[in-house]
Design a protein around this nucleic acid. Structure first.
Lengths: 347, 347
DNA sequence: TCTCTTTTTGACAGCGCTGTCATTTGAGCA
DNA sequence: TGCTCAAATGACAGCGCTGTCAAAAAGAGA
C-alpha cells in the first residue's frame, strides 16, 4: 500500500494517457469525463470512469492549471484574531468544502486596521492565482476589497456580512432573532434593567444583535434606556471597560448581555473584581459559544452559531459558482440556538 | 495598479521568455538565476535580476511543478483541537516561513485517536504532492507516520516532540527548566503541598514538565508525594476531574500546578464550585499562556512558550533542507518565561 | 600562439493536461 | 438506401518551466 503510494508520488504516476489506453479512448475524452463535460456517450463515460477508478487516477493539478484557465485555489482572507475559535470553525468548514470540491485552500491572515489592506489582498490574489475568495466577517464589508475582487474578476463569498450585495454569495444566520430570544429569556427571568454591550461596528452581527435586544424590550414593555447600552469591540478588554461603565450607574443592571463571549468573560471578570456573585448578583449572557464560555466560572449562557456549517456552505456555493453551475442563494438564514448555563438565574 | 495586477493575473502575465528577452539571455539562464543555481557569471546574474524586478516577474508555480521535481508545498498535519490557541501560533509561524520561502502551506486537521491515521496522512502526502511536512506535538511522535514519510522520502520537521530521531529536524523549548522555575516560584511562596496535574502522555512536554516539578521539589527538600500527582489529558474536563481528586485528599494541596492553561481553568472552575477563593485558599498555575489564562478570573500565573517562533524556525529549517542547503540543527532550545498573575499568592 | 580544460550559456524536449478545431459516427428522415 | 446534421470523438498545439546535453566562451598551461 505504501509502495503503491510511493510509486504514484514519484516516477510512474498514473496519467491521463494510462487511463485513455485502458479505456480505449483518446485522452481528450478522458479529460471530458474528468471535468463532467457534455457530449460524451453514457457508455463511454462509464467505461472511462471504470478505468479511472481501476487505476486510481488523480489529475495532476499543475498540468491542469498550466493548460487551463482555472487554478483550483480558493483564498481565505481573514482578520487574524487574538481568540481564534470563530476562525477555527470558519477554517474547518472551508477546508471541508474545498476538499470535497477538489480545491486547495490558501490563507491570508491580516491585521486590522491596515492601511495596506487592499494591496495585501491584491498581491495575494494575483501571486497565489486564486479562483475565488472567502471573506468571513468583518472582511466582507470592506468595499475596497469587494471592488478590487470585482475588478480582478475573482468571485467571492461572504460569511455573516453586514451589507447586502446584489447577486453575491453570502451566508448569514438569524442573529436578530437569536438576540431577541435570549433577551426575552432574560426578561422572563424577571430582570428589568438589562445592560447591553455592543460589538465591533464593522461586524454585521453587531447591529443585528442590538436590534434583537431592542425589539424584545419593546415587545415586553420595558423602557429602552441608552445608559444601559455600551459600545464594545468584541474583545475581552472592551468587555471589561464597558462593564465598568455599567457598574458606575446608580441603578446598575441586574443582567448584562454582551455581544460575544469574550466580552462576557470581561463582564464576569469585573464582577469578580467587585466581589459580585454571578449569577446571584448579576446574570451574564454571551454570544458564540466559544470554548471560554464553558471554561470560565460560572459557565456562560450564550448563543451558539453554526459557523462551521455556514463556512462550509459559503465555500461550496463559491466552488459551484466557479464551476459555472447555476447556484441559488440560500433564502433561509442559518439557525442559532440559546445555550443555557449557570451564568443566568431568576431574580 | 489594479489594472496592472489584472493584466498579470489573466492573459499577458510576464513569463520567463519576457525576462530572457529583456536581459538578452536564454530562458535557461533566467531559470538558473531564479533558482540560485551555480555557474552563472556575476554580471549576467545582475542583469537578469534587474530584468526580473523591472518586469516584476514571478515564476509560474504550476509550470515549475510540472516540469521539475519539486512541488513547493509543505503540509501541516495536526490534531484538530478544541482549543485552537496552540495551533494558531503554529499556523502563523509556519505560514510566515512558507511565505518567506515561496512555499504553499496545506493543512491536514486530524481527529485523534484515529485508526486511519497513517492512510489519511498517506493520501494527503501523495495526492497533495507534498515536498515536506510539519508535525507539531503530538503528531511528531507517531512512529507509523514517521516511517511512512521516510518511506515516501518526504522530509519532515517536528515541533516539541517527545523522542529524538537522529538527523531529523525538531525544535524544542526548555520545558523542564521552565517547570522547575515555576515550581520553585511556588515553593518560595511558602507552599509545601503542591499538587501537579500531568498532561497528555503523548505530548513531549508532559514528561518534561513533570520532571521539572520533581527536580524542584527535590532541590528544595520537599517530599515527593504521588498522591499529589494526577493524570490529565490537557483538556478542561480532565483538569476538572483531576482537581476533584486532589480536593478529596484529607490534606489537600494549597497550590496546584496544571500542565496547561485549559486544565488550570478546570482547577479554578472546581475551586469556585467548592467556594474556595483563588488565590487565598488555593494558588493555581498553568502552562502556555493561552488567551484563557488572562480572561478567567483570577488571571492565571502561567508559563509562556514561544510557539510561533518555534514553528517558524522548524518550517524555515525544513525549507532549507528541501532546497538542499546545509542546515545545522539548533543546539539551544527555545526559552520559556514565567508570567506572574493573580492566581498565585504567598501563604 | 595553440591546445586542453573548465566555466558559462543555450537549444530543445517534454512534464500532463485543456482548448481548438477537424473528423467520425450515427440518428433521423426523405 | 442515401443524405443531412448534430453529437461524439480525436489530433494536436501549447501552457511556462526545468532537465539534459551540446555548444560556446573563457582560462590555463606550454
Amino acid at each position: 500500500m505504501v509502495d503503491q503510494a510511493k510509486k504514484k508520488a514519484s516516477k510512474s504516476a498514473v496519467t491521463i494517457v494510462d487511463v485513455a489506453a485502458l479505456a480505449g479512448v483518446s485522452i481528450k475524452t478522458v479529460s471530458r469525463v474528468v471535468n463532467s463535460e457534455p457530449n460524451v456517450r453514457q457508455s463511454t463515460r462509464t467505461r472511462v470512469s471504470q478505468a479511472i477508478s481501476e487505476l486510481n487516477y488523480r489529475p495532476n493539478t499543475a498540468a491542469r492549471v498550466l493548460s487551463g484557465k482555472r487554478f483550483y485555489v480558493i483564498g481565505l482572507v481573514y482578520e487574524n484574531p487574538n481568540e481564534f475559535s470563530y476562525m477555527k470553525d470558519v477554517l474547518n468548514g472551508a477546508l471541508k468544502a474545498c476538499e470535497a470540491g477538489g480545491y486547495t485552500l490558501l490563507l491570508l491572515p491580516l491585521t486590522l486596521p491596515n492601511k495596506e489592506l487592499v494591496s495585501e489582498v491584491q498581491i495575494f490574489a494575483t501571486q497565489s492565482r486564486l479562483d475565488g475568495v472567502i471573506l468571513p466577517a468583518p472582511m466582507g464589508d470592506y468595499s475596497e476589497i469587494n471592488a478590487l475582487l470585482d475588478e480582478l474578476e475573482i468571485p467571492f463569498a461572504r460569511i455573516a456580512p453586514k451589507t447586502d450585495i446584489a447577486d453575491n454569495i453570502s451566508v448569514v444566520c438569524n442573529d436578530e432573532e437569536a438576540s431577541y430570544s435570549v433577551t426575552k429569556f432574560v426578561i422572563e427571568q424577571g430582570h428589568t434593567r438589562i445592560g447591553f454591550i455592543k460589538g465591533d461596528p464593522e461586524h454585521g452581527a453587531t447591529d443585528k444583535r442590538f436590534n434583537g435586544y431592542k425589539s424584545a424590550l419593546k415587545d415586553f414593555k420595558l423602557k429602552y434606556d441608552s445608559k444601559l447600552v455600551c459600545d464594545g469591540q468584541f474583545s475581552f478588554e472592551s468587555g471589561k471597560s464597558a462593564t465598568r461603565k455599567l457598574f458606575k450607574l446608580t441603578d446598575r443592571p441586574t443582567a448584562i448581555i454582551a455581544s460575544n463571549d469574550d466580552m462576557a468573560a470581561g463582564t464576569i471578570y469585573e464582577a469578580h473584581e467587585r466581589g459580585l456573585n454571578v449569577p446571584n448578583d448579576l446574570s451574564v449572557i454571551g454570544f458564540d459559544d466559544t470554548p471560554i464560555a464553558s471554561q470560565i466560572w460560572p459557565p456562560l449562557t450564550t448563543v451558539r452559531q453554526p459557523i462551521m456549517e455556514m463556512a462550509e456552505s459559503a465555500t461550496t456555493l463559491l466552488i459551484r459558482k466557479l464551476r459555472g453551475e447555476n447556484i441559488e442563494l440560500p433564502d433561509e438564514p442559518f439557525k442559532c440556538s440559546v445555550v443555557t448555563r449557570a451564568s443566568t438565574m431568576h431574580r
